[in-house]
Structures are given as C-alpha cells and as structure tokens.
Amino acid sequence: MSSRRPLALIVAAVLLAVLLILPVGHGSYFIYLLCSWLMFTIAAMGLNLTLGYAGRISLAQASFMGVGAYTTAILTLHGWPWLAAAPVGVLLCFVVGLLLGFPALRVRGHFLAFVTLAFNTLFFLVARNEDWLTGGSYGLSDIPRPRIGPISADGQLAFYYFTLAVSALAILALWGIVRSPWGRAFKALRENEVRAESLGLDTRRITLLAFAIGSAFGGLAGAIEAPLVQYIEPNSFAVGESLKVLLMVVVGGLGDFWGPALGAAMVVLLPEALRGTRYYLIVYALFVIALMVLKPTGLMGIGKTFLARLAKSRAAAATEAKP
C-alpha cells in the first residue's frame, strides 16, 4: 500500500497539470463541458461513497444537486457571495441526506433504491410546484457567477479554474475521509454489517453518515452547477439525472476512488464525441449495455485487468530471460 502512495501522488499531479493547460485555446463550449465533467465527478464521487464504499444505494443524488443548486441560486440572487451561499447548500444537503439515511436503517437493496427514487420525484414535484421559492417550471435565471474578493469568475476560463480549484479541494477532502478509519468503517459496513456491529461499530451512525456525506458532495456539485449554467429548472434534477449519476459510478467502477471521474467523463463526453452522428444516443446505450454485460466491474475494471495482464506478461518474460 505505502509503496503505491508516491505513484498515486505523481499521477494526481500530472492529471492536475493536464487539467490546468487543457482548456487553453479552446472554445467556450469545450470549457463548459470540462466544468460539467468536474461537477458530475463530484456528484458521482459522493454517490460512490454511499454506494461503492458503504454499500447503500441512493437514487436521489440529483435531488441533492438540486438542493445545492437552488440554495446557491436563491441566496446569490439575493446578493450573498457564493462562498457563503454554497456552504449553506452543502450543509442543507448534509442534513437532508442524514434524514434520507433513516429508511436505509430499515430496508436494503431494491427497496432502498425505490424509497430514494421516490424522494427524488417528490423533490422534483416541489421544485416544479412551489413557484414562490423555485420559480416553478420556469426555474431561476441570471444566476451570478462567483466573485472572490477582487477576482471574478465571470469569464468562462476563469470559471473553469474556479471549478477546478473547488473540485480539487473536494476530492482531496474525500480522499482524506476514505483513507481515514471512517473509510475502513464504511467498507466494513458494506462487507458484513453484523460483524462490524459486533466489533464496536455503531452501524446506524455510520450508515447515516454515509448518506449525509455522499449527499453533501451532491450539494456541492449543485452549488457549482447553478453559476455554471446560470439558469436552473426542475428537469435538471429529475430522477433521470440521478440514474445518470448512478450510471457514472457503476460504469466507472463501483467502490473505486477514481472510477466516478472516468464514468463521468464517459457519460458527459462520449455523447458529445458521438454527436456528429444521428444515432449517438443509440450507440451510447448499446455501448453501456455491452460494457455491463461483458465487464460488470466497469472501466476501472478493464484498466486493472489490463495492468494485471501486463505485469504478468512482464514477469513471465523476466523469468524466461533468466535461465
């Protein structure tokens, strides 16, 4: 484990450098896509904590993005700075996520999936019907971009760097959580709840925390989405979007730290790459079906199998060369 840490650091540093120079010279739509990818990565990484690490399914991640986005939008439209509004949204998601965790103490698997899915639909109905708060189906528009002191993130590129900075901090925080004893406790909960409880783990508390933290990351993604698109409406937070985030997590590789980033890239960018053709969503759907049927461990699973094969053939070559 410890021998791999420097490697992970190097990879992260290279990745960051690439992300810093990637948008330079590109058009604003490309930069928008990158922001969108980062935003969905945060949401998917949050869900991965709840589902991949702690083993509790939630099909409500889009509603948490919604809570974060609406909170941020409403407060910044009232003149609050983003730096004050976003934490309120994230905190709200933490609390609501905690409450949504209670059903998870009673039911598992498919049943929990449907409870959370129902919750998402209820959120959607509230967002659509409570015009006084959310603007109803017209949504909220002219959401301001963040401004931190003298620096404004009005321009597309400036907003990208802002998003990148927030994402990097969020991912770092999540990394800290996952490698702390909490991360081990989440996995223990997933692997064998009864045994974990008998070893002193308060499984109720850790289940609620898994929901609360995962949801808070959804809220942060929403807090980025509001100023990114500058216009939000209920459909962006419907059940379909939650399923999209779930798709990212599973396609990337369930329970793998970086899997959601890969999954989000595929879900956000692949349709764009295929957009030239008339059949892009059909091709995309076929690809997902094929991937799940042939490689249920997702893209990260493919990568790992490939690396393992490579290492094996190297080892084989080395032993062959010896005598």
Partner: peptide, 26 residues
C-alpha cells in the same frame, strides 16, 4: 442482456436495463 449477467447481476444489471430503456426510447 439478462442471461449473460446471471446469477447475480446486481447493479450492473440494473444499469444495463436503464441503458435498454434509453435504447428503446431513442
């Protein structure tokens, strides 16, 4: 879709059926 993923398809099977739904709709 279903047969190759049996006996326990789990979440990947759920995702596959979601993709089937996109496929049919589109």
């Amino acid at each position: 879709v279903v047969q190759p993923m049996m006996p326990d398809g789990g979440l990947p099977l759920v995702i596959a059926t979601m993709a089937v739904s996109i496929l049919l709709k589109e």
